[in-house]
Design a protein around this nucleic acid. Structure first.
Lengths: 143, 143
DNA sequence: CCCATTTTCTTGACTCATTCCAGAAAACGG
DNA sequence: CCGTTTTCTGGAATGAGTCAAGAAAATGGG
């Protein structure tokens, strides 16, 4: 579990200024996996008092651009953020309750990265979203 | 290329009433792959005259629910619709211009459908989005 | 062919995530 | 410690998509 000093280092290494809102947002993303912007704003305000939503949006964009957090947005959902970056993991999304869990890649290291037909694209990422029902929402047919 | 009669049959087979807006939307989706709602509204109005945007939204939802069209929504994009359904193909999206092209699945029939860890989820679909630059946006390093 | 029932379409207001803008405040480099 | 640059505040605006109520059209039985 990273400390404030760790977050500060991460920001500096990304050439980002170190501010209290940024530290708070970074901590919030690490503490609440797959949280949406609203939840993160709430979390940040809990630790810092009033912070403008605009600041949180700006910070999230800066962190995302810098590669410190990853933004995901399953269809029909608002933007969500997570701290696991650059490890090529994917997501399992419940169609019913919207729960999201991480899954490691099914097919080796850089998995599905080889599209059958590249169509001349320079592909740099393969994003996989598994859709289904989570255990809580899925009532298995009883025997 | 399906005819109006084909579209009518598709609607009836899906137990949907046959209306002019529905035929027009179905045709528009078949004619313009990956078009967004706005473009589809424009296309429908070209063939029918004024049609409320609400009608198009309703029709698109009905068609999507019935499985006659597929809705896709890459992160940062509005909803888009396509007529290829139930063939488990995926998409290649250009980060620069937003162009979308279809790609057949990389790994056999029902591809990445096997998540490494199911986490107890009842997975029914694996959606793969390849991100990169299309040929037009990608300037290859010249030799 | 016509009517009643049911579903769909129109109109217009509304929600809500996200963005835009201008000025105040804070962080960094010298 | 000061000036410059970047970030944060506050508030308004944008825009895709939804809600709701009544008008219109499609289907099926008579």
């Amino acid at each position: 579990m990273p400390t404030t000093a760790d977050y500060e280092r991460m920001l500096r290494e990304a050439s980002l200024r170190v501010t209290r809102p940024r530290l708070a947002v970074l901590a919030a993303v690490h503490d609440h996996a797959h949280a949406d912007t609203d939840a993160l704003i709430g979390s940040v305000r809990e630790s810092l008092g009033e912070v403008s939503h605009q600041a949180v949006y700006d910070v999230l964009r800066a962190l995302t651009t810098a590669g410190l957090v990853r933004r995901i947005q399953p269809s029909g959902s608002v933007a969500r953020y997570e701290s696991r970056v650059a490890d090529n993991h994917h997501h399992l999304v419940c169609r019913s309750c919207g729960a999201i869990v991480d899954v490691d890649c099914a097919v080796g290291e850089t998995p599905c990265l080889t599209a059958a037909e590249g169509h001349g694209f320079a592909v740099d990422e393969a994003e996989v979203t598994y859709w289904g029902l989570c255990p809580a929402c899925f009532t298995p047919p009883r025997s």
